[in-house]
C-alpha cells in the first residue's frame, strides 16, 4: 500500500522543478533522529519561552514580548531569507509573524509544541502564503475546549523530547543535516522528498507514540 515512489516519476510536465534523490532519505534520517533518546538536554530556556508566551496571553506583557522578539524575530527573518525572500520582505513578514504570536497567544498549547515549533509553523504558513502565493489548508481543530490546560508534566515531557530531538539533529552527519535544512527551508520539492529511497516507516514509532498519547489525552 505504501507505494514506493520511483525516480521515473519525475516528469517534465510537472511545474515543480526538482531532481530526485534527496529527501526520502532526509525524512528517513529525521525519523531516526526523532527516535534517538538522550538523558540530557537543555530545557530551561524553553520553559522560559513558554512562560513568556503565557505572560503575553494573560497580561499582555510587553517586556516578555520584547524578549521573545529579540530571540525569535531575527530567526524568522533568517528563515524567510533562506527560503528565498528578499531582506525587506523578510523583515516585514518577521514582524507580522511576531504580531501573530501576540494575537494568537491564547491558542498556544505548550503540551503539544515548543515555542520554537509554534513560531516555525506560523512562519512557514506565512511563507507559503506570501512567497508561494497559495493557501495553506490546516487540519480541523481537535475538539477540546479552552479549559483543557495541559498538565505541567506534559509540558515538561514535551520540552525534554524537543531537547532530545535537537541533540539528535545536531548529532547527524553534516550532509544529512544539510539535507533536512534544504527540505525545511524550501529547497526541495515534494517530488525530491518522495524520491528518497529506503524510508523506514517503522522507526518513527517510538517518539511518535508519546505525541499520540498526548493527543488522545487532550481529546479525552
Amino acid at each position: 500500500m505504501f507505494t514506493e515512489i520511483g525516480p521515473g516519476m519525475l516528469l517534465e510536465d510537472v511545474a515543480f522543478s526538482a531532481t530526485p534523490a534527496a529527501i526520502k532519505e532526509t525524512a528517513e534520517k529525521t525519523v531516526e533522529a526523532m527516535t534517538v533518546t538522550r538523558e540530557t538536554g537543555k530545557t530551561d530556556k524553553e520553559c522560559d519561552w513558554v512562560d513568556h508566551v503565557l505572560r503575553i496571553r494573560d497580561a499582555q506583557d510587553q517586556t516578555a514580548f520584547a524578549e521573545l522578539f529579540r530571540h525569535f524575530a531575527p530567526r524568522v527573518k533568517a528563515f524567510l531569507i533562506r527560503s528565498g525572500s528578499d531582506p525587506a520582505l523578510a523583515e516585514e513578514c518577521a514582524q507580522e509573524v511576531m504580531a501573530t504570536l501576540w494575537h494568537k497567544a491564547h491558542l498556544f498549547d505548550p503540551g503539544r509544541a515548543s515555542v520554537a515549533t509554534w513560531v516555525f509553523t506560523i512562519a512557514r504558513n506565512r511563507r507559503i502564503d506570501l512567497i508561494r502565493r497559495q493557501r495553506r489548508p490546516e487540519p480541523e481543530d481537535l475538539p477540546w475546549g479552552p479549559e483543557a490546560e495541559p498538565e505541567p508534566a506534559e509540558v515538561v515531557s514535551l520540552q525534554q523530547e524537543t531537547a532530545q530531538l535537537r541533540d539528535a539533529i545536531n548529532a547527524l552527519p553534516k550532509a544529512q543535516r544539510e539535507l533536512i535544512e534544504k527540505a525545511y527551508f524550501g529547497d526541495l520539492s515534494h517530488r525530491e522528498i518522495a524520491a528518497q529511497t529506503g524510508l523506514p516507516l517503522g522507526t518513527i514509532k517510538s517518539r511518535i507514540r508519546l505525541a499520540l498519547d498526548r493527543l488522545r489525552h487532550a481529546i479525552g
Partner: peptide, 27 residues
C-alpha cells in the same frame, strides 16, 4: 490522530532548525 501526531513531530523538526539556524541576521 495517528498521522496528526506524526505530522506534529515533523513540525518539531522545523522548530529546532528555525531556532538553531546560525545565520547572523539582524532586524
Amino acid at each position: 490522530d495517528d498521522c496528526r501526531a506524526r505530522a506534529e513531530s515533523f513540525d518539531a523538526v522545523g522548530g529546532v532548525l528555525l531556532e538553531d539556524n546560525q545565520t547572523e541576521i539582524e532586524m
